[in-house]
Design a binder for these strands. Structure first.
Length: 259
DNA sequence: ATGCCGAAGTTACTTCGA
């Protein structure tokens, strides 16, 4: 089976591209982030016409996560156990479901904005909650993966210019330590192939010709438990989906499994 | 060729993203 994760940067603005990509890539399960629409506004009929059931959680202008599946979807859970709030709101940044033989969690981690901003400790608190939340599924025998936009470059190789990013969010030791704690719960980074160039970046800023110049980040990750990781036969970043008019600023991460 | 930011709420400008 094929599982993918994609920060789509608006489900409504990207719907035509999503439907075309479902047709061409033919994934069985797709985890989406940054829906930027409320749950009630998710175009479930158009997605159903493409052959996928939808579980989604969104509140409007920002954030929002979903799981699409053509192999069934059950045991849906929104949010994390003990998920921290921001500005007195529980933001739609996590949804978990069982789809056929796998259990997947679609995650959109807080950006952090700046190390001095309240959003930064919120990001660290979210990661701490994630580590605790994922522990049971990580230890389980069901193939499980916590996938999505982690908004962290795991190493200095995972961004185009580490020197230029010193002291900014996404690369700090605190964020990397918090990510390591998530992995320590029993999850391993499924490292993808790049379809071009040396490194599998998943995000390129819209500005400054960053995509043509390959000034990217690897921030979309799939953290898998041993049962999931053992079934992986291939993984790649579909950078072709980043091309052209109306692309998201993130490319899908695609994982093939012998399941 | 992959090409100089884009989405959404509100309605001319603002906030957010990484």
């Amino acid at each position: 089976m094929r599982v993918a994760t994609w920060n789509i940067n608006s489900l409504k603005a990207r719907l035509d591209r999503l439907l075309a990509w479902l047709e061409s890539a033919s994934p069985d399960v797709v985890c989406l982030q940054e829906l930027k629409c409320a749950t009630a506004d998710v175009p479930v009929e158009a997605i159903a016409d493409a052959g996928y059931e939808t579980a989604a959680w969104g509140t409007g202008r920002w954030n929002g996560v979903a799981i699409l599946s053509r192999v069934g979807i059950s045991d849906v859970r929104t949010g994390l156990a003990d998920q921290p709030d921001f500005a007195d709101a529980t933001e739609p940044r996590a949804i978990t479901a069982t789809c056929g033989p796998v259990r997947v969690q679609s995650l959109y981690l807080p950006n952090g904005r700046d190390v001095a901003d309240p959003h930064f400790p919120y990001k660290l608190a979210f990661l701490k909650a994630l580590a605790a939340d994922a522990a049971a599924d990580a230890r389980g025998e069901t193939p499980f993966a916590a996938v999505g936009d982690y908004n962290i470059c795991p190493t200095d190789d995972d961004l185009w210019d580490a020197a230029a990013w010193t002291g900014t969010t996404h690369v700090t030791p605190q964020e990397r330590a918090a990510l390591d704690a998530v992995k320590a719960a029993g999850l391993a980074d499924v490292f993808p192939r790049a379809l071009k160039y040396e490194w599998p970046f998943t995000y390129w800023d819209y500005r400054n010709l960053d995509f043509p110049k390959n000034r990217g980040l690897r921030i979309d990750l799939a953290l898998a438990n041993p049962a999931f990781a053992a079934a992986v036969t291939d993984a790649y970043v579909d950078r072709n989906e980043r091309k052209g008019k109306g692309a998201s600023d993130h490319a899908p991460l695609v994982i093939d499994l012998d399941l």
